[in-house]
């Protein structure tokens, strides 16, 4: 589904990603793990078109999306839940969801409210007043209303208590099966990765340093020690 080859991305001074290559197969949840500051968010932003790569390619199926503007990438079927959620705090829950469909027109599909029944109850609330868990649900729901093919999640578990992370994991599994969704999951939470991902890749110093079957990972695994340990 998604093929990243030899991707270089930076911020003017110095490149952060120095030749990232990886594949996200269709219908899978593929995780990317790595320590703080390794460039995971930088990669997500480049995939979404918010940062222009200086070299390399990003292909969505056969379509080259590297360097295209974000609204075109969104139109090609990519949706993004950024780190920190990117909620429009002053807008209502409903307006946030409507923004997910604003570009292509139409209404918020009813099944999204079925996945997230609490959001249906909170429709008229100002998004900034929601709890962290509710805001994360809103960010994911907003990404899903456009019926994307590829969902990019940047550290969705950040700041959530373990029970909520577990709940989110179950829901994501259900949605992935339901909509044949492909997910690119950036995470540092091993429990969530083990639970929902098939494969985990590790980003170290701007390159992919290896991969592993997600279910084989444990806090004692040597790869985890090497790439995530302190």
């Amino acid at each position: 589904m998604l093929t990243i080859s030899d991707l270089h991305v930076g911020y003017g001074h110095g490149t952060v990603l120095q030749g990232v290559s990886m594949i996200v197969p269709r219908g899978t949840v593929t995780a990317l793990m790595g320590r703080n500051g390794m460039g995971k968010t930088t990669l997500c932003r480049a995939l979404m078109g918010l940062l222009a790569p200086s070299a390399g390619s990003i292909r969505l199926d056969e379509l080259e999306i590297g360097g295209r503007p974000p609204h075109r990438i969104a139109a090609a079927g990519v949706a993004y839940v950024p780190q920190g959620r990117g909620i429009f705090e002053r807008f209502t829950v409903e307006e946030n969801l409507e923004l997910g469909v604003a570009a292509r027109g139409g209404r918020v599909p009813a099944h999204v409210y079925r996945w997230f029944p609490t959001l249906a109850e909170l429709r008229r609330r100002t998004a900034g007043t929601l709890s962290g868990g509710e805001q994360q649900a809103l960010a994911i729901a907003r990404a899903l209303v456009s019926e994307p093919r590829l969902l990019i999640l940047d550290e969705p578990s950040e700041g959530l208590q373990p029970s909520l992370v577990e709940e989110m994991g179950s829901l994501l599994l259900r949605i992935v099966a339901d909509r044949h969704l492909t997910v690119f999951l950036v995470e540092q939470n091993l429990a969530l990765v083990r639970r929902i991902a098939t494969i985990a890749a590790f980003l170290v110093d701007g390159r992919i340093a290896g991969g592993a079957a997600a279910r084989d990972l444990s806090p004692e695994s040597p790869v985890i020690h090497r790439h995530l340990g302190l």
């Binding site: 979404m48 078109g49 918010l50 503007p69 974000p70 609204h71 969104a74 139109a75 949706a79 993004y80 950024p82 990117g86 429009f88 002053r90 807008f91 307006e95 409507e98 923004l99 997910g100 604003a102 570009a103 292509r104 907003r142 456009s146």
Partner: peptide, 24 residues
């Protein structure tokens, strides 16, 4: 209106608006 909503979104968080498919 929807135009107003997208304009306010582009005002508040241009990058997020763009990622949602809005041609900012």
């Amino acid at each position: 209106t929807r135009f107003g909503l997208t304009a306010r979104a582009a005002m508040a968080r241009p990058d997020m608006a763009a990622a949602l498919g809005i041609d900012v």
